[in-house]
Design a protein around this nucleic acid. Structure first.
Lengths: 349, 349
DNA sequence: TTGTAGGCGTTATCAA
DNA sequence: TTGATAACGCCTACAA
């Protein structure tokens, strides 16, 4: 073995003492770095003897591959970009948790960036993700055009939740918002309500439109004419729900039930009604949508449409993982289920 | 200029066509790569002429430095690890938003990992972060021992929220939980309440202990003996708050007011009281802590202690940034403020 | 002030 | 099945 001028080489390096590299593992195991890499990635067949030696060396040295270097060399960073809207929202929070947990099992890490319900922010978010060389992107709803999204998907595997898109590396799935909203409205109708007000979401978004359609469906099925005066648009926030109720009440139209197209607006609406001395459910029956934790602890506990947001996140992650493996994902979300609590009651009269 | 065998080189490369590298910028600007790097990082003085040329080239080519490569070469990844407990919690969600927004302004990206209130998870989370070569770590509360945290801080700049730690690269700050809890309790006392129950958090955590201390402080100051029968431990969740109320009620101790040491437990407690036919505030005055959005929309709207969680996150990020610049951070959080809403009232008798 | 050259820790290609 | 060797895109010590 020829003596090497270790120190000279060291002087130039800014690598911390303790870092265990793949190279050191190779040395210790008496094989070449490539072999170690192959074992790590299962890229090629390796003799059992060397496998064992390398595994032992990895254990002994406590080696952990450096994802940054991997990213540079192999083009894989083991990270998945996630475009969420507002990270602090109770809705998205649940989804992110599902994503994180599921990705973790495969050694991936999510990179969360917020779109803030704003096209420009979303575009910037995706750009950030691209520059970080994520291996794929999960998009939760959002405002970006289908065209733009599809274009990004040409570069990178992509999962979109809440839209209808598809492509070679692009898969999307949605919760059945329409059926859920139909069930909610139907429940109210079955309770004897005929004047059922509705707070929609921002109709720029598919899910909001679908929920509204579900509302119309149920009314139509029961032979009730939809009354535009009973419909207001909200923005999926508590404040928006409260505001919507005010606007509704100002119209001076009588209603005995109210369907808010998400829980947050329902909670806001509840307070709005309270302020006008209208009691839930005595004066107005109230239904929400999502079944967030807040629904269970609302006062009164809120009747709502259950959608497992956590699961949606987890499924999105699973789908991404299978896209990455070159498979075609196939997501089957549970059907919407109405959860009847105490904010609705049979109409008395 | 000597002709180079471009194609041969290309064949080996797996770099996508469109990627603009620093090298290309250098070429275009007629300078060496190092010069471009220097301009980008302000590492050394460069003549104005070259600066201009390089800037122009960057513009023309739309060059964006590759953070992955930067990370490998320079050891900086422009990413900050954030150890949160549960990403889906309304409390942490707000903080994360503050962190994200603040870091973004400096070109940094947060890497969120969940500790799940579990020591092992937290340790693993930090390890993930380290292996991803983050430039610094922000820890929100958590279960890891001070010693372990301090040790990590030897390697990496660290900001800890909700603990008392310090070191060369370590800065921590906390909200004044004690003063906040004192104010909350005092408010109840001023309303004429003497039998004030208390739901604590997990006393493994400083903030929970401090809030309990604040409760004791106020009682002592008013000459009221603390009654252990009026104190139960919760876990900062809605379910925990509800459970705590049950346990309290089973003890058959009379109380006219209840201070839950966070909003989520207060909301849970509210439902628990309701289940036993106790009305808030008619039968029991209720105070929470945090002033999350849910407090504002609770039924009745919840009196609570305001702490700007968003701001705490933003401050943590700012502090990290200044640590990174080699400065000593100095965080000044707003003092706790009681927000009186409708869940408390003067005791009638 | 500027350029050259080597290195960061992996992966991928090619030859053996 | 294995090992050299050349990237990946950028930074930095050193020399000029």
């Amino acid at each position: 073995m020829t003596a090497r001028t270790q120190p000279a080489k060291r002087a130039l390096s800014n690598r911390p003492e303790g870092v265990v590299t793949l190279e050191r593992v190779a040395e210790q195991a008496g094989v070449s770095p490539s072999t170690v890499s192959r074992i790590l990635n299962g890229t090629a067949a390796v003799s059992q003897a060397k496998k064992d030696a390398v595994q032992a060396a990895i254990q002994a040295l406590g080696f952990r591959p450096n994802p940054v270097a991997r990213g540079l060399a192999g083009g894989r960073t083991l990270s998945i970009g996630v475009v969420t809207q507002i990270i602090s929202s109770p809705f998205y929070g649940e989804a992110l948790l599902g994503i994180e947990r599921e990705l973790e099992r495969a050694g991936y890490v999510p990179l969360f960036v917020s779109g803030n319900w704003h096209e420009d922010d979303e575009r910037k978010a995706i750009e950030t993700l691209l520059s970080r060389r994520v291996d794929g992107v999960i998009v939760l709803a959002g405002r970006l055009s289908d065209a733009e999204l599809t274009q990004v998907a040409d570069t990178l595997p992509m999962i979109v939740v809440g839209r209808q898109l598809s492509g070679p590396q692009l898969y999307s799935f949605s919760f059945d918002n329409r059926a859920g909203a139909r069930a909610a409205t139907q429940h109210l109708i079955e309770q004897g309500h005929r004047r059922i007000a509705f707070i929609s979401g921002d109709l720029l978004h598919d899910d909001a439109v679908e929920r509204q359609n579900g509302y119309f469906d149920a009314l139509a099925a029961a032979g009730i004419a939809a009354d535009p005066d009973l419909i207001v648009q909200g923005d999926y926030t508590e404040a928006g729900g409260m505001l919507a109720v005010s606007r509704l009440l100002e119209r001076d139209q009588h209603f005995t039930a109210l369907f808010a197209s998400n829980d947050q607006m329902a909670i806001g609406a509840c307070l709005g009604l309270h302020r006008r001395n209208l009691r839930v459910p005595d004066d107005v029956s109230l239904v929400g949508f999502d079944d967030l934790i807040m629904a269970r602890y609302a006062m009164p506990p809120l009747t709502t449409v259950r959608q497992s947001v956590y699961e949606i996140g987890a499924e999105a992650a699973t789908a991404m993982l299978s896209l990455l493996r070159g498979n075609r994902p196939e997501v089957q979300l549970p059907a919407p289920a109405l959860v009847v609590r105490e904010s609705t009651r049979r109409m008395l009269r």
